[in-house]
Amino acid sequence: MKKKLVFAGSGGQGVISMATLTCLAAIECKWNAVMSQTYGIEQRGGTAVGFVVISDEEIGSPMIEEDADICCLMHPMIVDAHIKDAASGGIVLYNSSLVKSEPVRESVEFLSVPATDAAQELGERRAANMFALGRLSAETGFVPIEALCSALEKMLGEKKKHLVEINQKALRAGYAGGCNEEK
């Protein structure tokens, strides 16, 4: 098993957290994980992209070049730049709360997820990233939802323990939404 994932968004949306959590969940499953990211010279704003490779074998190339199995687009500003990262036959999840017009691309499967709206309903708009991840787990099984939930506790640690509950809630809500919906 080897999966390549791209998480792209605007700085502050938590896309790097999505990538990190994916890696930690993979490690929960005793798999290997490699994550790289692009970053600007500025500390805030701009785009943020996390690239992830998870595998139950040793990971060779950590690079992603138009061969991602899953591509998560959380913000309209990065759609044009990163929709091409998905492999042919790959899955492109986009945050339809912000990406208003459906992205155009051949030979990929689109998943329209109103992540920001859903998170707002749960009471924490910033948990949109977790909602999207939960949904992705339900739709693709890239990592089990339980692995995401337990990795979340490790990622947040003691200092951010108070954030575990809302983020797990968003993960599970996203997962449930994905399960109920007809494919």
Partner: peptide
């Protein structure tokens, strides 16, 4: 620089 910023097990 990419390798330096990469996160791995």
């Amino acid at each position: 620089g990419v390798m330096a910023q990469m996160i791995e097990t």
